[in-house]
Simulated scan of single mutants.
Amino acid sequence: MRPQPLAACLLAVLLPLGAAAQAATAPAVPAAPAAPVPAPAATPPAPAAPAGLTGSFDNGRVLAYTCQGCHGITGYKNAYPSYKVPKIGGQTQQYLSQALSEYRQGKRKHPTMQAQSMSFSEQEIADLAVYLSTVK
Protein backbone atom coordinates (compact mmCIF):
# COMPACT_ATOMS: atom_id res chain seq x y z
CA MET A 1 0.00 0.00 0.00
CA ARG A 2 1.50 3.32 -0.95
CA PRO A 3 1.32 6.31 1.40
CA GLN A 4 -1.16 9.00 0.52
CA PRO A 5 -0.44 12.74 0.81
CA LEU A 6 -1.94 14.37 3.89
CA ALA A 7 -4.40 16.38 1.79
CA ALA A 8 -5.77 13.21 0.16
CA CYS A 9 -6.22 11.55 3.55
CA LEU A 10 -8.04 14.57 4.97
CA LEU A 11 -10.24 14.77 1.91
CA ALA A 12 -11.12 11.09 2.21
CA VAL A 13 -12.16 11.60 5.84
CA LEU A 14 -13.86 14.97 5.63
CA LEU A 15 -15.75 14.59 2.34
CA PRO A 16 -18.20 11.95 3.65
CA LEU A 17 -18.78 14.02 6.80
CA GLY A 18 -19.67 17.10 4.75
CA ALA A 19 -22.03 15.11 2.54
CA ALA A 20 -23.80 13.68 5.59
CA ALA A 21 -24.21 17.15 7.13
CA GLN A 22 -25.53 18.58 3.88
CA ALA A 23 -28.05 15.73 3.53
CA ALA A 24 -29.29 16.30 7.09
CA THR A 25 -29.93 20.04 6.52
CA ALA A 26 -31.30 19.89 2.97
CA PRO A 27 -35.09 20.24 2.64
CA ALA A 28 -36.93 17.22 1.39
CA VAL A 29 -37.59 17.60 -2.32
CA PRO A 30 -39.73 15.09 -4.16
CA ALA A 31 -37.64 13.12 -6.54
CA ALA A 32 -38.18 13.82 -10.21
CA PRO A 33 -38.59 10.82 -12.44
CA ALA A 34 -35.19 9.69 -13.55
CA ALA A 35 -34.36 10.04 -17.20
CA PRO A 36 -33.62 6.73 -18.84
CA VAL A 37 -29.93 6.04 -18.90
CA PRO A 38 -28.70 4.41 -22.08
CA ALA A 39 -27.22 1.01 -21.49
CA PRO A 40 -23.47 0.87 -22.02
CA ALA A 41 -22.31 -0.88 -25.15
CA ALA A 42 -21.91 -4.56 -24.50
CA THR A 43 -18.29 -5.55 -24.23
CA PRO A 44 -17.35 -9.13 -24.82
CA PRO A 45 -15.85 -10.90 -21.82
CA ALA A 46 -12.11 -11.32 -21.79
CA PRO A 47 -11.20 -14.52 -23.57
CA ALA A 48 -9.77 -17.39 -21.58
CA ALA A 49 -6.03 -17.75 -21.84
CA PRO A 50 -5.26 -20.03 -24.75
CA ALA A 51 -2.46 -22.57 -24.58
CA GLY A 52 -0.27 -20.55 -26.96
CA LEU A 53 -0.65 -17.29 -25.01
CA THR A 54 1.70 -14.55 -26.15
CA GLY A 55 2.90 -11.84 -23.85
CA SER A 56 3.43 -8.10 -24.01
CA PHE A 57 7.03 -7.00 -23.54
CA ASP A 58 6.06 -3.52 -22.30
CA ASN A 59 3.55 -4.78 -19.75
CA GLY A 60 6.05 -7.40 -18.59
CA ARG A 61 8.67 -4.68 -18.03
CA VAL A 62 6.24 -2.79 -15.80
CA LEU A 63 5.21 -5.92 -13.87
CA ALA A 64 8.83 -7.06 -13.39
CA TYR A 65 9.52 -4.05 -11.19
CA THR A 66 8.33 -6.07 -8.19
CA CYS A 67 10.61 -8.99 -9.10
CA GLN A 68 13.72 -6.81 -8.99
CA GLY A 69 13.47 -6.43 -5.21
CA CYS A 70 14.83 -9.96 -4.77
CA HIS A 71 15.82 -11.33 -8.16
CA GLY A 72 17.65 -8.18 -9.24
CA ILE A 73 20.24 -8.35 -6.45
CA THR A 74 23.24 -10.55 -7.16
CA GLY A 75 23.80 -13.12 -4.39
CA TYR A 76 20.65 -12.13 -2.46
CA LYS A 77 19.26 -14.61 0.09
CA ASN A 78 15.91 -14.61 1.88
CA ALA A 79 16.01 -14.10 5.64
CA TYR A 80 13.47 -16.86 6.35
CA PRO A 81 13.35 -19.48 5.11
CA SER A 82 16.88 -19.11 3.88
CA TYR A 83 16.95 -19.64 0.11
CA LYS A 84 19.40 -18.42 -2.44
CA VAL A 85 17.26 -16.32 -4.78
CA PRO A 86 17.66 -17.64 -8.33
CA LYS A 87 18.54 -15.54 -11.35
CA ILE A 88 15.43 -15.24 -13.51
CA GLY A 89 16.66 -12.81 -16.15
CA GLY A 90 17.50 -14.64 -19.38
CA GLN A 91 15.58 -17.81 -18.52
CA THR A 92 13.33 -19.16 -21.26
CA GLN A 93 9.75 -17.96 -21.55
CA GLN A 94 8.53 -21.52 -21.11
CA TYR A 95 10.49 -22.00 -17.88
CA LEU A 96 9.37 -18.68 -16.39
CA SER A 97 5.70 -19.27 -17.25
CA GLN A 98 5.81 -22.81 -15.91
CA ALA A 99 7.51 -21.76 -12.66
CA LEU A 100 5.01 -18.99 -11.91
CA SER A 101 2.09 -21.25 -12.81
CA GLU A 102 3.40 -23.98 -10.52
CA TYR A 103 3.71 -21.50 -7.64
CA ARG A 104 0.07 -20.47 -8.28
CA GLN A 105 -1.05 -24.10 -8.24
CA GLY A 106 0.90 -24.90 -5.07
CA LYS A 107 3.18 -27.38 -6.86
CA ARG A 108 6.19 -25.26 -5.89
CA LYS A 109 6.49 -24.23 -2.28
CA HIS A 110 7.76 -20.79 -1.34
CA PRO A 111 5.43 -18.49 0.60
CA THR A 112 6.57 -15.25 -1.05
CA MET A 113 6.51 -16.63 -4.57
CA GLN A 114 3.14 -18.29 -4.03
CA ALA A 115 1.69 -14.97 -2.88
CA GLN A 116 3.30 -13.08 -5.77
CA SER A 117 2.12 -15.57 -8.38
CA MET A 118 -1.45 -15.43 -7.07
CA SER A 119 -1.52 -11.70 -7.83
CA PHE A 120 -0.83 -12.29 -11.55
CA SER A 121 -3.32 -13.33 -14.22
CA GLU A 122 -2.32 -15.87 -16.86
CA GLN A 123 -1.80 -12.98 -19.30
CA GLU A 124 0.45 -11.15 -16.83
CA ILE A 125 2.51 -14.31 -16.32
CA ALA A 126 2.97 -14.51 -20.10
CA ASP A 127 3.94 -10.81 -20.17
CA LEU A 128 6.50 -11.32 -17.40
CA ALA A 129 7.97 -14.35 -19.17
CA VAL A 130 8.39 -12.41 -22.43
CA TYR A 131 10.17 -9.53 -20.70
CA LEU A 132 12.29 -11.50 -18.23
CA SER A 133 13.53 -13.86 -20.95
CA THR A 134 15.27 -10.87 -22.58
CA VAL A 135 16.95 -9.53 -19.41
CA LYS A 136 20.63 -10.43 -19.12
Rank of each mutant, 00 (worst) to 15 (best):
L53R: 06
L53W: 01
T54F: 10
F57C: 06
N59F: 00
N59Q: 15
N59P: 00
G60M: 05
R61C: 01
V62T: 13
L63F: 04
T66R: 11
C67M: 07
C67Q: 08
C67D: 09
G69S: 10
G69F: 10
G69E: 08
H71D: 07
H71I: 10
H71V: 11
H71A: 11
I73V: 15
Y76D: 11
K77T: 14
N78V: 04
P81A: 07
S82C: 02
Y83I: 14
K84F: 06
K84Y: 10
K87C: 06
G89F: 13
G89N: 09
G90N: 10
G90V: 08
G90R: 06
Q91I: 04
Q91A: 12
T92V: 11
Q93D: 03
Q93G: 09
Q93I: 01
Q93C: 03
Q93M: 11
Q94F: 06
Y95Q: 03
S97K: 03
S97P: 00
Q98W: 03
Q98K: 04
Q98L: 04
L100A: 08
E102P: 00
R104D: 04
R104E: 04
Q105S: 15
K107A: 14
R108P: 00
K109W: 07
P111A: 12
Q114E: 08
Q114N: 14
A115L: 04
Q116N: 11
Q116T: 12
M118Q: 14
S119F: 02
S119R: 12
S121T: 15
